[in-house]
Design a protein around this nucleic acid. Sequence first.
DNA 1: TAGAGTAGTTTATAATATAAACCAAATTAT
DNA 2: ATAATTTGGTTTATATTATAAACTACTCTA
Lengths: 97, 97
Amino acid sequence: MFKPLDPLLHSELRLAVMSLLISTEEAEFPYIKEQTGATAGNLSVQIDKLSAAGYIEVEKTFKGKKPCTLCRITPAGLKAFEEYVESLKGYLEVTSK
Amino acid sequence: MFKPLDPLLHSELRLAVMSLLISTEEAEFPYIKEQTGATAGNLSVQIDKLSAAGYIEVEKTFKGKKPCTLCRITPAGLKAFEEYVESLKGYLEVTSK
DNA sequence: TAGAGTAGTTTATAATATAAACCAAATTAT
DNA sequence: ATAATTTGGTTTATATTATAAACTACTCTA
């Protein structure tokens, strides 16, 4: 009935980041920051966690002279997200018996 | 895009409790404990929080000689749950553009 | 070259979840 | 009768987590 929810994804900000990356394939740090409304510090920490879990890939490049942190979802991340959504459904689908 | 998620509901156990109560209208502590797989301590704390927020009603009665804690969802709780689900959709519906 | 802006990271703190320890009453075993 | 066990919880201590504040480094502009 109530399957456990991946704690890495059951977090408002990390879920938003994952959701965004699934839609966009690839996104830069400032864009994610703007879209999620997160502070840079918080976002940095959560991106690290997703990256450490292998759910996203982080590439640090340069855009001219400015640093540019690019994030991309990984197949493992996509799978985890799908499983999370599937598990979550058990909590949301109210079987009005 | 990413609406804030009610932190009271964005918790695995509390969400399970709410989901259960919406389906059953009324449930006893041991039943909720069994269905959610939670420990009694954890469940007690989370029920208190939902109750303090006015999301559920807790009635302490007796069943013969044994204490019996009955939980029921409130209209405010139902509304909060529905809003939570609505907000959550923004995170789950991946607009594969 | 001083000040402001951009792009982040590190770290300290506050909030949260969770289980362990505990309490009280009832039931069962000796 | 009384000791152990079970039932039905609550309280409290701890571990984890989320979050913002403080910081670093580099660039751009006046």
